[in-house]
Amino acid sequence: MKLQEKILIAARETISIEAKAIANLEHLIDNEFVEAVEKIYNSKGRVVVTGIGKSAIIASKIVATLNSTGTPAIFMHAADAIHGDLGNIQKDDVVICISKSGNSPEIKVLVPFIKDFKNPLIGITGDKNSFLGKEADFVLNSYVEKEACPNNLAPTTSTTAQMVLGDALAIALVNLKGFSRKDFAKYHPGGSLGKKLYLRVSDITAQNQKPIVSPDTSVTDAIIEISEKMLGVTAVLENDKIIGIITDGDIRRMLKKSTDFKDLTARDIMSVNPKTINQDTLAVEALDMLEENKISQLLAVENGNYAGVVHIHNLIREGIL
């Protein structure tokens, strides 16, 4: 067997094994999952997520997901917990403990202390009959038939299952809280994701010049205005109201008909009823309009008045596209 073929077989088999295990989780979700979500939802404290080894790494990811979706959470390493970090657990906190076997030595030491604190304990384990499974107030079953590792040793499928259950918890809480796009934007102000959630048309138009001509402006002057403002377009205004638009495309179509345009005005070549968008609209919605109408520019308006231009290049530069 060729090396390339062996690699492809291993990769596809890994994906297949993990996909089947994740699909099976749907059948393992029961009333304890519901009760665990309700306990977190009604809690006045945070969610403390703990684990050992690879499960600790998954715990960190679950904490990040919870925090980013409006549920305050902190990570506590199970080994560090019994050496002082138990002080992180406060009175109203809910603790999630993650362990594939549910019988790790560190877990067996840690769990009784958590129980002594009287904090609700949610266990994520692949064995409901394990130490963790029996001691937890709520058990989320992360059972998998086998690891993707050919020796059935390296945590692969099991850690994927743990992470998916963590995602399921977080999204269930999102739904209960009615966590909106606006809420999400508060926690993700950076990067292209944040910009999609908070960047508005007004933020774009503020960066651009504002090309304007009147309907009686000569085509020559309209071309100069388009060129100088570098947006490939100009609005045509009459009595301060938009009555048309002239784009590079309009100029090209005019030149196909005739190169003699010395007597033509903006009114003669403009397109009427141009697409407009409100200044307070999200920039990502401007992108949707551009793509839907297969155009490169939109005229922005504020209270019905011309406010500027949004060009698709603006959105590309901002990382929206």
Rank of each mutant, 00 (worst) to 15 (best):
K2P: 12
L3Y: 12
Q4M: 07
I7E: 11
R12H: 12
I15Q: 13
S16M: 04
S16Q: 15
I17Q: 13
A19E: 09
A21T: 01
N24H: 12
E26W: 02
H27F: 13
E32Q: 15
V48W: 02
A56D: 06
K61P: 03
I62S: 07
G70N: 05
D80K: 13
I82G: 08
H83E: 08
L86V: 08
L86F: 14
Q90A: 12
Q90Y: 09
K91G: 04
I96A: 07
G102Y: 07
G102R: 10
F113C: 12
L121G: 05
L121E: 07
I124P: 04
T125A: 08
G126L: 00
N129K: 15
F131L: 10
E135G: 01
D137I: 04
F138Y: 15
V139M: 05
L140G: 06
K146Y: 00
A148G: 12
C149I: 06
P150R: 10
N151I: 14
N151F: 14
T157I: 05
T160P: 01
A161C: 10
V164F: 08
G166S: 05
L176N: 08
L176S: 08
G178Y: 11
R181C: 03
F184I: 04
H188G: 08
P189K: 09
G191E: 11
G191S: 09
S192W: 01
S192K: 15
K196Y: 05
K196R: 15
Y198G: 01
R200Y: 04
D203F: 00
I204C: 03
Q207W: 03
K210C: 07
P211G: 10
S214M: 08
T220A: 13
I224H: 10
S227M: 06
K229Q: 10
M230T: 08
V233Q: 09
A235F: 00
I242T: 11
I243A: 12
D250S: 05
I251F: 06
R252F: 06
R253A: 09
R253Q: 06
T259L: 13
D263M: 11
L264Q: 11
A266N: 04
M270I: 09
K275T: 07
N278Y: 09
N278V: 00
E285M: 10
E291A: 07
E292T: 09
E292F: 10
E292P: 00
S296K: 14
A300H: 01
A300V: 05
N303L: 05
N305E: 13
Y306A: 01
V310K: 07
H311E: 09
I316S: 14
R317M: 12
I320H: 13
I320L: 15
L321P: 02
